[in-house]
Amino acid sequence: MKIPEILGEVRALVTPAMEESLSRLSPEIRRVIDYHMGWRDAEGRPVQRRGSKSVRPALAFLSAKAGGGEVKDAVPGALAVEFLNNWAFLIDDVMDGDRFRRQRETAWVVFGQGQAICAGTALLTLAQQVLLESPSADRLAALSLTMDTSARMLAGQTLDMTFEQRFDYSVDESMTMTQSKTASLMRCATSIGAILVGADDTVVDALADFGQSVGVAFQARDDMLGIWGTPDQTGGRPRGFDVKARKGTLPMAVALNDAIHGEELRKIFGQEGELAVPDVERATQLIDAAGGRQWTEDLARRMVERANTALARLTLEDDVRGHLGELAAMGLPDDVSR
């Protein structure tokens, strides 16, 4: 996947601001977060790692520009969405038992579950603090948005966890989980900058619709990578990781509800213990044969198209429109191997 150049520029801008905000945290919590962010190793030594792509901070900055403001006005919003994003990563990794992220061991594996949960909770709190300290007259509206977003993300995560206990969930339920757990944060990122600069509701609403659609596209692509992606695309996770973990993703939901292949797939997932390699391979074949891959790919493309339609409602500078379009295109699953 081609990474838009703007992400490198945003990372150079937002990382120092993040480090300054994080300096108020205790050394013990900061150590876990610095490791999770890819800035330091487990012993606290600086390392050269890619870390976060900074997609959501970039969207927050572009949101401010789209709303008639400046990038500097959106810094608190950019920090808030990045803190929310990494709060979710830290907590999800513990809940899901994921052992690798960004091509190294997850924070809970290195520091323990309790430390990772504390670090994630600290980020959630910090997301609220940076907005309360913002000079924007609309900071409370931005804070309300982030609190609503975190509640939606928690609802989505809770629903996701129920899928681990049953295999009768519908495609609609899986879509609800996607809308809540992933797309709500993208919606927040694409509208919070405009809120902070006092943009009209029509602008905020169009940007929110853009972000919601982009969020679904991103999750659909991630769901495909979780089954058919290579380790270099998935941060070190093996091919078929989501199948082995029986994750309730969109392709899985489509296949489980297929009249021809669903019953066999449910039997495989209903086995006790960890799935063997042949079972993972067979389940992957069934998901593909049931149309799970094609349905999810079509969804991602449709959502990117819908996002661009939302952008068409706005009068934007060419560079802002171009950057938003580039970031939306990251949801296209062209690079997921077959």
Rank of each mutant, 00 (worst) to 15 (best):
T162L: 10
K72A: 15
A189H: 08
D168E: 12
L324R: 10
A66Y: 04
D319G: 01
S337I: 15
E70H: 12
A17M: 12
D200Y: 03
T309W: 01
F210G: 05
F83K: 12
K247E: 06
M330Y: 06
L13P: 00
D242K: 10
A64E: 07
T230G: 02
S150Q: 05
A189F: 07
E5Q: 13
S184R: 09
A60I: 08
G120C: 07
V336P: 05
A259D: 14
S63F: 07
A141P: 00
A137R: 15
D318Q: 14
D168I: 07
R306A: 14
R102L: 08
W228C: 07
I260D: 10
E173I: 04
D148E: 15
D232F: 03
D209P: 03
I91R: 11
R45S: 12
R306I: 00
V94W: 01
G112I: 01
G270T: 05
I268Y: 13
G114P: 02
I91D: 01
I287A: 09
A42M: 01
A78K: 00
V204C: 06
E5W: 06
T315P: 00
G229S: 07
S191N: 10
G236M: 01
G51V: 04
A88H: 14
G120T: 05
D92Y: 12
K2R: 14
R49I: 02
E20H: 09
E264A: 13
S21P: 02
I91K: 04
D205Y: 03
E272Q: 14
A283E: 06
H323F: 02
W87T: 10
A255Q: 12
R237T: 04
A183N: 04
R166P: 11
R306E: 14
L25P: 08
E264Y: 05
D258R: 08
G229I: 03
M153D: 07
V81M: 11
R338T: 13
G248V: 03
G270F: 08
G193S: 10
V243T: 04
L126E: 06
W87L: 06
L7H: 12
D34G: 06
E105Q: 14
G248N: 06
A107C: 05
P231Y: 02
L124W: 05
A66W: 06
E70C: 10
L25E: 00
R102W: 11
T202E: 14
V320T: 15
M161N: 06
F61V: 01
A80P: 13
R301A: 07
